[in-house]
């Protein structure tokens, strides 16, 4: 009996530890708006879960990504995401194979247009994924960018 309750106890606490590890219960999420867990995440799925609470997404043709086909310098890759969707509340830019894939997330007010541009670092050749949150759902588009010199090393 004692052994059983001990086992139960450890299992419950390890479940909490896993949740913290995945960024679900990250204390910073409560204190500050900056989603530490999402930016620390090592995979696209974990980053989306940390940022939007879910990684479920639908590929959409209504999202355009403007980025170079070949980036000579991975340290500076200009990326523009443009969508004609309505009710866009956020646009995230993810460099899928970076050590920490999530590069940037833009929370948009109702009067903001569905267009954001920035410049990101890319470690190697990979897909840039644009994630658009519209009406509570996630839509994605991707574009492959060839990187000749990585931008994450030194």
């Amino acid at each position: 009996m004692k052994r059983r309750s001990f086992l139960k106890g450890t299992m419950a606490s390890s479940a909490v530890a896993v949740a913290v590890g995945a960024g679900l219960l990250n204390p910073r999420n409560v204190l500050a708006a900056w989603p530490q867990g999402a930016f620390d995440a090592k995979s696209f799925q974990d980053a989306m879960t940390g940022l939007f609470g879910s990684a479920d997404n639908t590929a959409s043709g209504d999202i355009q990504i403007k980025a170079p086909d070949i980036a000579e310098n991975g340290a500076v890759v200009p990326v523009t995401v443009n969508t004609k969707m309505t009710n866009v509340s956020a646009i995230a830019i993810v460099a899928e194979k970076n050590g920490q894939p999530l590069a940037a997330n833009f929370e948009l007010a109702a009067n903001a247009k569905g267009t954001v541009s920035t410049r990101i670092k890319m470690g190697k050749t990979m897909d840039v994924v644009a994630v658009v949150k519209s009406g509570g759902k996630l839509y994605t588009a991707r574009k492959n960018v060839k990187v000749t010199i990585g931008g994450c090393g030194g």
Binding site: A33, W34, P35, F39, A75, V76, V77, P78, T80, A95, N98, Q100, L102, A103, A104, N105, F106, E107, L108, A109, N111, A112, K113, T115, V116, S117, T118, R119, I120, K121, M122, G151, C152
Partner: peptide
């Protein structure tokens, strides 16, 4: 007085960052 865009960035945004966006009204 209203926040139009609130961007959250990771370290993967390039040095001397550039950003652009648009809003109506």
């Amino acid at each position: 007085g209203k926040v139009v865009v609130n961007a959250q960035w990771g370290a993967a945004v390039s040095k001397n960052p550039y950003l652009s966006f648009a809003f109506s009204g």
